[in-house]
């Protein structure tokens, strides 16, 4: 499938090298990717960015979406440490003011932390998804990194908010089972190694409706990340759901033709 309908739910820009985002566009087109969701250069200022640094990340995302509206959609990055007033203000600025389509949370606060509550409540009011970094790590786990059991806890408390649990390979079978009871949790396939069999397992256990293609580009490569979807032993109808149909439903108009 190279017909430019694919939606990549998990892409990043690089603040210190603005040219990177532009280089993504022709490479995306070569792989049939029409729309990339920019989640911001979330690591630009470390794990715990200040309010000003969060603004900088989101301004960068918004500028790229304005410049390349046919290729990028933006998500608003937040650090839940900043407190309700600052969080809601930044959500309004990004979503209402700059047209961002969702929220991206990384590793500043664990997903089961109650400091996420105002974000989730406002996301529910706005009808936008929350994409959360997630991984079951044996080693190299950061201080406030979430695992799928944290996402399950969050999902159980906010059943009306769609949560995208990032990194299928990092979450793996145990993570899929953790979130299986919560239909408001989708899983993105981005990042890590393309471990064989996981896409098929996720389709069997969750249904293709709960999977979204993502790459984690430019840390990763479209080739390696799409290869796992294009060659998974699943029905073509399910492949289309993963590559673009589910994301189009989630993100609404303008996500892809």
């Amino acid at each position: 499938m190279q017909d430019s309908r694919i939606i990549d739910i998990h892409a990043h820009s690089v603040i210190k090298d603005p040219a990177v985002a532009e280089t993504l566009i022709p490479e995306a087109a070569r792989h049939g990717v029409k729309t990339m969701v920019l989640l911001g250069d979330v690591g630009a200022f470390g794990e715990f960015p200040s309010e000003e640094e969060v603004w900088r990340i989101n301004d960068d995302t918004a500028a790229l979406v304005r410049r390349f509206p046919a290729s990028f959609l933006g998500f608003c990055h937040l650090n839940p440490e900043h407190g309700s007033k600052a969080l809601l203000s930044e959500m309004d600025r990004c979503v209402k003011g700059m047209g961002m389509r969702g929220i991206k949370l990384w590793v500043s606060v664990v997903a089961r932390d109650r400091r996420l509550d105002p974000i989730m409540e406002r996301a529910g009011e706005l009808g936008i998804p929350v994409l959360h970094h997630c991984w079951y790590k044996t080693v190299q786990k950061t201080r406030c990194e979430s695992d799928p059991s944290d996402i399950a806890d969050l999902a159980s408390r906010f059943p009306g908010v769609t949560i995208v649990m990032a990194h299928l390979s990092g979450c793996a079978q145990r993570g899929i089972q953790d979130i299986k009871p919560f239909p408001n949790v989708l899983v993105d396939t981005s990042g890590s190694q393309p471990v064989a069999g996981l896409v098929e397992y996720a389709v069997r256990e969750l249904g293709a409706e709960r999977l979204l293609y993502g790459s984690d580009i430019p840390v990763r490569d479209f080739a390696g990340q799409l290869g796992r979807i294009l060659s998974a032993d699943i029905a073509e109808e399910d492949r289309e759901k993963i590559l673009f149909r589910n994301a189009r439903r989630l993100l609404g108009p303008g996500a892809a033709a």
Binding site: A196, V219, R228
Partner: peptide, 30 residues
């Protein structure tokens, strides 16, 4: 990496790089 092979070949000589899939641990198509 983004554009894996051209990026690697900026720092590595092509005569010392080999195709490897690590099948069946990883999806071969990747």
């Amino acid at each position: 990496r983004f554009r894996t092979l051209p990026t690697l070949l900026k720092e590595a000589p092509a005569d010392r790089v080999l195709f490897g899939s690590h099948a069946p641990f990883l999806y071969v198509r990747a």
